[in-house]
Simulated assay, not measured.
Amino acid sequence: MKIAIVGSRGIPAAYGGFETFAENISAQLRDIGHEVSVVGEKGSNITQGKFHGIRIIESAYRKGESPLKFYYDSLKKASFEHDILLVCGVGGAPFYPIIRKKRNIIVSNVDGLEHLRDKYSFLQKTYVRIAQKFASKYSDFLVADAKALASFWIQKQNVPSSRLKIIPYGTHKPAGFNPDVLREYGLQNKEYYILVARFVPENHILEIAEGFRVSGTKKKILIIGTHENTEYSEMVLKYKSENILMPGAQYHREKLDSLRAGAFAYLHGHSVGGTNPSLLESMSAGTVCICHDNPFNREVNGEGQLYFRNSIELAERIKRLESKSEQETSEYCKKSMQRIKDFYTWNNAANSYNTLFRELNG
């Protein structure tokens, strides 16, 4: 079967969740025996149009600069020779009726509740809502990565449950722990917290920085993420200090694995994105995760874990965790790692997609 993954910036992953998804699912589907292509944005530096046996199709546009042109061009190029178009997000859905060829089966991975993202303007949120309607009507099938997300599409978009399937994301096995990586950042093992996220309001970085400050902890916090030129980023950066470190983005997987493994705990503020890869990676690394309290994070990390709704609650959770013994804190880690094994592997995700594609393709 010929499968094209459309809508991400491309592989190898160097931006966010969709890129991580595209890189891992494409490799798994390739190993199953499918011919897999990934459509990426303009500027791909993959030589010979291949990445580990995955065909790379380059759009004529960059997603961040011309998103609508990117979606249209990517979908059009993928439609000519592929049986399945696995589309990341709904941004390109208004183009489905235009680009669809008779042989195409369009499967939309609907991502999170994009219309709730504070970083978007009123016009952008309006477009997202329109795109959601098109995705509901013109997708052959929809995939949600979380039960809470599926509920939105069934209840608010009137998508029949027979046209929607829940397939959780997966995560990779950590590469291991390299103490040299910690030294690069001036950190000591288990003497710091970590947060990996883009500087946008729905990731609650501001509340996390304030809660960390109020807690009075002697440990440091390493906030890994892009410093976008926005008012919100400027507000967050004001918290930068000797103990609140903000070195910028880091996309090197092995380094991130070591930073997560060496952390005392991971602070996770994402609130609208469904199953978040960074949370899965921290759980897989055996790190205690203190998460923003919302249905997505509770679904992933389960009950009996630590959650917060605001900076005051986060400060209390930090104090509570630091008062516990090593044996007590290890119980949080064991529960998280077991959930990864049970529900969140790329192998499980790929097998679910493979079954779905074969059913849809007859």
Results as ranks from 00 to 15, higher is better:
S161C: 02
Y266G: 13
S282T: 13
A249S: 15
Q338D: 12
D83E: 14
I11R: 10
F264M: 05
A131W: 08
S325Q: 06
G170N: 09
I25H: 10
V143A: 00
A135S: 09
K341D: 13
L182I: 09
I32T: 09
L113A: 11
E184D: 15
N158E: 06
H204K: 12
K335D: 08
V272P: 01
P295L: 02
G7Q: 11
P174F: 11
N189C: 13
E234N: 13
L195A: 15
L259F: 04
K50A: 01
M1S: 11
S161V: 06
V107S: 08
Y127H: 12
L86H: 04
R9H: 03
P12H: 10
H34C: 09
L279S: 07
W346Q: 08
E23W: 09
V288G: 01
N104I: 05
Q28G: 03
T329S: 14
K238A: 09
I340Q: 04
E228Y: 15
Q157S: 02
I194D: 08
Y72E: 10
I312M: 06
H252R: 15
A27E: 13
S352R: 15
R320A: 13
A27R: 14
D257I: 10
E114H: 08
I290H: 09
I98C: 02
I244Q: 05
P97C: 13
E65P: 02
E35P: 01
P160T: 00
I56V: 13
V38G: 03
S325N: 05
A60M: 05
I154E: 01
A175Y: 13
F199G: 04
G49C: 10
G186K: 07
A22I: 03
T230D: 06
F70K: 09
H292D: 01
Y169T: 08
F18W: 15
G304S: 10
L267F: 03
E231T: 14
K125E: 08
N178I: 13
T126H: 05
K63Q: 14
K341N: 14
L356Q: 01
V214G: 00
P12W: 06
E322D: 14
N294H: 12
G362M: 06
A13N: 12
I224T: 12
Y169P: 02
A27I: 08
I98W: 03
A249P: 14
K219D: 06
R55S: 13
K76P: 00
A150D: 02
E234T: 14
G176P: 10
G10T: 04
G7D: 09
G64K: 12
S311K: 14
A150R: 09
A150F: 05
K334D: 03
A315M: 03
G248Q: 12
F152V: 07
G53E: 07
Q327V: 11
Q28R: 14
V181N: 05
S44C: 08
M1P: 01
S151I: 02
I244T: 07
T226N: 10
N203Q: 14
I11N: 09
R309C: 02
T126F: 06
V90G: 02
Y72C: 04
L187F: 11
I318M: 03
R298N: 02
Y353A: 04
